[in-house]
């Protein structure tokens, strides 16, 4: 059975890149959200095995959305997506429960490595 992923990012461009990578490697993209507000709801509806979450988004930030998802499901596998120079936010996210993070611009193999590792956990 394919691994089910949810992609959260306010930029359609980024969501498409990630979706492409996932689909090409046999993952199933079960949901995508463009802001933190809909993220929690979509998470609970689609129950993905893994979420990629952009750190900086308008309205609700990735970290807030992360916290909400972790509160609802402490076992959630969330991987943060960040740009360079956001070390402090990445630290905050990891402290808040993110399982790992990838930094833009990312290499396809790094994304896959990270996702495989996180999904392989417990």
């Amino acid at each position: 059975m394919a691994i089910r992923v949810m992609v959260v990012d306010d930029a359609l461009f980024m969501r498409n890149i990630l979706k492409d990578i996932f689909v090409r490697h046999g993952y199933e993209v079960v949901a995508e959200a463009e802001n933190g507000e809909t993220a929690l709801q979509l998470y609970q509806e689609s129950k993905p095995d893994l979420v990629t979450m952009d750190i900086v988004m308008p309205k609700k930030s990735g970290i807030e959305a992360l916290q909400e998802i972790m509160a609802a499901d402490p076992e959630a596998h969330v991987v943060m997506v960040s740009a360079l120079g956001q070390d402090t936010l990445v630290l905050e996210a990891v402290e808040a429960g993110a399982r790992d993070f990838i930094v833009k611009p990312f290499k396809e193999d790094k994304v896959l490595e990270t996702v495989r590792r996180v999904v392989g956990q417990d």
Binding site: S82, L84, Q86, D87, V90, L91, A93, V94, E95, F101, V103
Partner: peptide, 8 residues
């Protein structure tokens, strides 16, 4: 990048 977070 974000080496401290990596460390954690």
């Amino acid at each position: 990048p974000a080496a401290a977070a990596r460390g954690i």
